[in-house]
Simulated assay, not measured.
Amino acid sequence: VHMTSTEVLVQNSLLNTQKYFIFASSLPFQVAHVNDEGIEFITPHKITETHVIINITELSAFGNVKDKDSPPDPVRALVLLFYRPPTDPDPESVLNVLLLPETVVLRDVLRTRKERDRDERFIEISPHCKLIPKQEYTLSISPEDDSVLVQPPEAEFDEESYNNYLSSFQVNLEKIMKSIKLFLRETNSSHSVWERRVCLPSTAVRKPRRQSSRISSIARLRTCFIDGISGPVLQSLLDKLFEKNVITEPERESAEELRNNRDKARFVIDTVRKKGEAASSEMIEFLYEGDPFLCKHLGLI
């Protein structure tokens, strides 16, 4: 009987690397297992059009064996920094430190943090390190200063529950500092698993200036406001004014009926201006949030 053979090399974490020969003929398939002791013929467990499946029960002494009580292995992780700069004239700022597994999508982290705090800035610095799951870590600062507070004193690295992208540590800086040095260590250890010098942005967040009369401000800038505000910013402003009860639902509906952007802007500014100082202040605050560049152009900041 004419027979052909195909050599197959089998290797994985639980099996020795060994050779198997598959013999094909008009008779049923036979698998010959070649080892140091000779040849062993194995009856296939299952035969398909593309595969011959055999049962192998012997295990390698070099397999991956791990005691269930042994400590977890370190995993690749990221230390991400988000800085909320001081707001004039208050010098206090906040540095948020996130401990995350390396598998996170940075784009998702940035988007989520931005939605939570639009003034927060991502500090791009080498984030890579190795952390042990369920291990407690501490964050230290240099230079040590009474004006710097790190909280909490220690935090656990959780490689599974991180979807909210919350801060593991928060560093409160009561005075303006150009740079600091961060040390991440295992609790009760002097060895740093991550150590970086961090330059802090010096530009403070600027808020709209409090003027003596917001009514006179928006009245004076009425034409520039009508000509300068974009459609999306105007729509956002209209929505916020309604949400905060600055304008009523009928007033919002009247504005929505106006298709021309300049007519809608004219209606909004005139309606708010007639409601007094508080309404005018709210409008300027909302406008700053939606378009700080327009506020600067109008001289409101």
Score class of each variant (00 low, 15 high):
Val104Phe: 04
Glu92Arg: 14
Ile123His: 03
Lys130Thr: 12
Phe122Ser: 01
Glu124Trp: 12
Cys129Tyr: 00
Leu98Ser: 06
Phe82Ala: 06
Val109Ser: 00
Arg116Gly: 05
Ser60His: 02
Ile125Asn: 12
Ser93Val: 08
Lys68Ser: 09
Leu81Thr: 06
Thr87Arg: 11
Glu124Met: 13
Pro74Gln: 06
Lys130Cys: 15
Arg121Val: 07
Thr112Ala: 08
Val104Leu: 09
Asp88Lys: 15
Thr87His: 07
Val104His: 07
Ile125Glu: 12
Leu100Cys: 02
Leu131Asp: 05
Arg116Leu: 04
Asn64Leu: 15
Val65His: 03
Leu98Trp: 06
Glu102Gly: 00
Leu98Asp: 11
Val104Pro: 00
Asn64Thr: 13
Glu124Tyr: 13
Asn64Tyr: 13
Lys66Asn: 12
His128Trp: 14
His128Pro: 02
Val75Lys: 11
Leu78Ala: 06
Asp108Lys: 15
Pro127Cys: 09
Asp69Ile: 07
Ile123Thr: 03
Lys66Cys: 11
Phe62Trp: 10
Val109Leu: 03
Leu80Tyr: 04
Val104Lys: 03
Pro91Phe: 01
Glu120Tyr: 04
Pro101His: 07
Val75Glu: 09
Phe62Val: 11
Asn96Arg: 00
Phe82Cys: 03
Pro71Phe: 04
Glu124Thr: 14
Ser126Tyr: 10
Asp88Arg: 14
Ser126Phe: 11
Asp119Met: 03
Val105Gln: 15
Ile125Asp: 07
Ile132Pro: 00
Ser93His: 04
Pro127Val: 12
Glu92Pro: 01
Val109Asp: 00
Leu59Gly: 02
Asp73Phe: 13
Leu81Phe: 07
Lys66Val: 15
Asp69Leu: 10
Leu98Asn: 07
Thr103Asn: 13
Val105Ser: 14
Leu99Gln: 01
Val104Cys: 02
Ile125Thr: 14
Leu98Gly: 04
Arg76Asn: 14
Leu59Glu: 13
Ser70Leu: 11
Pro72His: 07
Glu120Phe: 04
Ile132Asn: 04
Arg84Ile: 06
Arg121Glu: 10
Phe82Met: 01
Pro72Tyr: 06
His128Lys: 08
Asp67Ala: 14
Cys129Ser: 08
Leu95Val: 13
Leu78Ile: 08
Glu115Gly: 00
Val105Phe: 12
Glu115Trp: 02
Thr103Gln: 13
Pro127Tyr: 08
Leu59Tyr: 10
